[in-house]
């Protein structure tokens, strides 16, 4: 117990605050039904991630996050909302889809099982992690963010919210990758490629969402047939 408190005391105050900010904004972004607010919190989250990479000693990643996450991916979401380049089709406001309880329970269970496996995997290599989670609250935040994003991805039907959840899941995974492998050149290259992929995927997703809205209206964004696949 004392060791635990000592470990807490060893935390850097700035890092603790940043980790709390990251987790908080991620949770709002994932679970707020008000879509515009969720997207603003995503932008805030990306800004906090930039700072986090800086603190972890990866200035290049901070630059990549600033450019790709904040500069390019963020606007994609506002385009999907219909706030940038407004078109004939209406802009999105709230997620009004609801799920039957049994499906929610099943999806959460599947997400938990998946995350259990990932957690066990990380636990096995914890001995040679570059940054220990006990010294770096940012990594703890990464674990929490990845877990809740996975849950949200499995839970939501609204396509925009799933796209948001994917982006946050990506950030959590990148943070875990940095924790396991350190911020070596190779790890930074992987994360940068991952950021580019996330941006391209989000752009494609945003274009699709606008197009679907135009063709079929808001209802189409929740039309996701098979719970079996969507829980993966």
């Amino acid at each position: 117990m004392i060791a635990f408190f000592e470990a807490i005391a060893a935390f850097d105050v700035i890092e603790v605050l940043l980790a709390l900010g990251l987790t908080g904004s991620a949770l709002v972004c994932l679970f707020d039904r008000h879509l515009v607010r969720a997207c603003y919190f995503f932008v805030f989250f990306a800004a906090a991630m930039t700072l986090a990479w800086w603190l972890l000693g990866a200035p290049w990643l901070a630059a990549a996050e600033l450019g790709l996450g904040l500069g390019l991916t963020g606007p994609c979401f506002f385009y999907a909302l219909g706030h940038v380049l407004p078109s004939a089709s209406s802009s999105l406001e709230r997620d009004t889809f609801s799920e039957p309880g049994s499906r929610v329970a099943m999806r959460v269970l599947l997400a938990l099982a998946w995350f259990g496996m990932v957690g066990a995997a990380i636990r096995t290599v914890i001995a040679d992690m570059a940054y220990s989670p006990l010294e770096h609250p940012l990594l703890l935040a990464g674990v929490v963010i990845a877990a809740s994003a996975l849950g949200a991805f499995a839970l939501h039907r609204h396509l925009l919210r799933r796209l948001l959840a994917f982006n946050l899941l990506g950030s959590g995974v990148f943070m875990l990758l940095a924790g396991v492998a350190g911020t070596s050149a190779a790890a930074q290259a992987f994360i940068s490629v991952g950021l580019v992929v996330a941006w391209l995927g989000t752009m494609l997703g945003a274009l699709l969402i606008r197009r679907l809205l135009h063709l079929e209206g808001v209802e189409a964004l929740g039309r996701d047939g098979n719970p079996k696949e969507s829980a993966i």
């Binding site: 875990l176 790890a187 993966i232």
Partner: peptide, 18 residues
């Protein structure tokens, strides 16, 4: 969405290797 999440799973595996 599935392909993107699949790619993150792959990335976690790579993280372990790295």
């Amino acid at each position: 969405l599935l392909a993107l999440v699949g790619s993150l799973t792959y990335l976690l595996g790579v993280a372990l290797i790295l």
